[in-house]
């Protein structure tokens, strides 16, 4: 087999590992979102796309369309919130909400409009990108999912698919049909004996690992992190200690969007991302998440890295069929998962 050629194998492995690290981040976000909100979050990959393409637009010194999406969602979310407050007889708090949202909106617009044409240093642009993409998470949760809080998993899944189409369509409007790459954070390669690894790949792997460690500490050590775990384990129990499902949902979606945007920034230099890449990127995270049964974080991460490796080797030897291979792989995994998931009879004492 050619792929075991000592000059090719390490390159493919490094490639697979780099992409796998990003898929693993997405897989973690997907598991988190599903566990806390029961939403199968198909649009996770769109956050990646918005991350890369927002950064690419800033590189050109233009204002990214992401800003308009944030502002529109902020407006809708504020009106929805105000309306539900008013219905509960708290019209004044509703007005305050609208006012605060307006101030936030103007602030975001002013900062973006000022920074975008300056072609600021890369790290400033990265922070601005994260600052624009991360709020999409909680805003989309408020506008799309919170009104569906009591719906079944299947209804939420259909809503996710619908949202995925909306975001893909908007990405085409904002960023156009051409793919973009962002500049590498570091140039050059690291050579260890036979293996050559670019500094950029190393950065992706290290940053992903650091983020995973950060998430681990957040969930194990902090009250908000524990609250999210508690909501995932037992919704009613969580509400009984005062954790509201909506605030847990918002926090979860913020994390998901942040992880997605970071993934986009990390992957940007090595992959040409187009407006519609999100679905396939997200689905690869999904294969990992499903290997973890949508419950286990370590299994999900391991599964996603495996997907990255398989994809890398498949694209070398059977490039036209690589998607078929990756997605056919999901079927036996799904079957195994659904057979090992025990369902408890509903009628009990």
């Amino acid at each position: 087999m050619q792929i075991f050629d000592p000059t090719i194998f390490p390159i493919l492995a490094a490639d697979g590992l780099t992409n796998g690290a990003v898929y693993a981040l997405l897989a973690l976000a997907l598991v988190l979102v599903f566990a806390v909100t029961r939403v199968i979050f198909i649009p996770q990959g769109e956050f990646v796309v918005f991350g890369t393409l927002t950064l690419a637009t800033l590189q050109l010194g233009r204002t990214p369309g992401t800003l308009w999406l944030v502002l529109a969602l902020l407006g809708i979310a504020a009106l929805m919130e105000a309306f539900s407050l008013a219905r509960n007889g708290q019209a004044r708090r509703g007005l305050v909400t609208v006012g605060v949202a307006a101030l936030l909106g103007v602030g975001t617009w002013a900062v973006t409009d000022w920074l975008a044409p300056l072609k600021a240093p890369l790290w400033v642009q990265v922070i601005l990108t994260l600052g624009l993409v991360a709020p999409l998470g909680p805003l989309l949760y408020r506008v799309v999912y919170q009104p569906l809080q009591n719906a079944t998993v299947l209804v939420l899944l259909i809503a996710s698919v619908a949202l995925h189409l909306v975001l893909t369509g908007l990405a085409l409007v904002f960023f156009g049909p051409e793919g973009s790459r962002t500049p590498a954070f570091f140039e050059g390669n690291l050579t260890l004996g036979q293996v050559t690894l670019s500094w950029q790949s190393l950065l992706v792997i290290v940053a992903s690992a650091a983020l995973m460690l950060g998430l681990y500490l957040f969930f194990e050590r902090t009250m908000p992190g524990k609250a999210l775990r508690a909501t995932a384990v037992n919704r009613l129990g969580a509400r009984l200690v005062g954790i509201s499902p909506s605030s847990a949902g918002m926090l979860t979606f913020t994390l998901a969007a942040l992880i997605g945007a970071l993934g986009g920034v990390l992957i940007g230099p090595s992959v040409a991302v187009t407006y519609d890449s999100g679905f396939l990127i997200g689905l690869k995270g999904f294969v990992g998440a499903i290997i973890g049964g949508l419950v286990s974080y370590p299994l999900a991460a391991a599964g996603a890295i495996l997907v990255g490796l398989i994809e890398s080797f498949a694209s070398f030897s059977l490039s036209a069929w690589k998607e078929v291979i990756v997605f056919t792989l999901i079927l036996p995994v799904l079957l195994w998962r659904s057979l090992t998931t025990r369902h408890i009879p509903e009628d009990e004492e």
Binding site: I40, V153, L154, L157, L283, F286, I290, E323, V324, F327, T328, I330, L331, L334, L335, R337, S338, T341, H343
Partner: peptide, 15 residues
């Protein structure tokens, strides 16, 4: 497959 695994499988074979 139970519940949500089936629709995910249909996405996979659809692709």
């Amino acid at each position: 497959m139970q519940g949500h695994y089936l629709p995910l499988a249909t996405i996979a074979w659809g692709i």
